[in-house]
Design a protein around this nucleic acid. Structure first.
Lengths: 156, 156
DNA sequence: TATTGTTATACTCTATAACTATA
DNA sequence: TATAGTTATAGAGTATAACAATA
């Protein structure tokens, strides 16, 4: 029996295919969580990065956005009352972005939805999930990027 | 010692964080492979979907692009001599997109680069990689999307 | 009338460059 | 002079709608 010519590369033992499939599931899940809260992806990414109050410049660096984009993203969040711009009295050029109570409640909801394992694990039992997690952690090693929210945005 | 207030959700046993970190590594890797061949992401996605000749409509459906986008993507690939539009003699409305020899050689390179496990597995040994793969396969179950290349494009 | 592919257009996300107000 | 933020603008990627050719 000849090797099927449409599959020149054996895929049986490859990691990439199932990983990419799982990535697809996670993206669907993340978009559902974020869309359900009426947030755009950059707004969600920014909110998740605002665990602690940051200047817009710091937020841009942390999220690896160009600073010019932060204005519009924060505009939208501010219009919804989720964050406030507070002028730094020590340096009146900088605006410190502070999450409001409403914003904090919304981010809590977002995290609770986004960080659930259930949408990802299918029929894995608890021991297998733990095993999967350990293997992922070891695979990533020290190569984890500074801000996990980067994953949610297209790069470059 | 108080629980750090900046981490209201325990992350120690969660799957999402390391998965997202691994996704970030894969995206870097994929973008490097694709960029090195001078392809845009949609061009790469299209080429990878053209394992078998398809009409533009079929390609659009398979990739879940709107059909109007296929024109420009195929234009670019055709200019580089990677694919050809062949008018279907049985129905002169449809253009069958056929990968040329040059295109096939380039896709082979792309697959060889893209599908390597090494950039993903870090310090995992062969047995651990196999274990990780089995767990990923089981986690995904029958929920894998029809076309894995979807992962490479932002959705919605 | 329905379908394939194309064009024109609009919207989102991102980056670059020029501007302002502070420092 | 340098930095924080804003504005204007451009480019990529995607979708919708109208159109031409063909069925």
């Amino acid at each position: 029996m000849p090797t099927p010519s449409s599959s020149p590369i054996a895929t049986e033992n490859r990691l990439v295919e199932p990983l990419v499939a799982l990535i697809g599931l996670f993206k669907e899940h993340a978009e559902a969580c974020i869309g359900a809260l009426g947030l755009s992806m950059p707004q969600a990414v920014a909110l998740l990065g605002l665990d602690t109050p940051l200047s817009q410049r710091e937020l841009a660096d942390c999220l690896r956005y160009d600073a010019s984009n932060i204005t519009g993203i924060v505009d939208g969040l501010e219009r919804r009352g989720l964050v406030e711009r507070q002028v730094d009295p020590a340096d009146r050029r900088v605006r410190r972005i502070v999450v409001t109570e409403d914003g904090a409640a919304l981010v809590d909801h977002l995290r609770e939805c986004l960080f659930r394992d259930e949408p990802l694990v299918g029929t894995l039992d608890a021991a297998e999930v733990a095993q999967l997690r350990d293997l992922l952690v070891k695979a990533v090693g020290d190569r984890a990027s500074s801000s996990w929210v980067e994953m949610l945005r297209p790069r470059r």
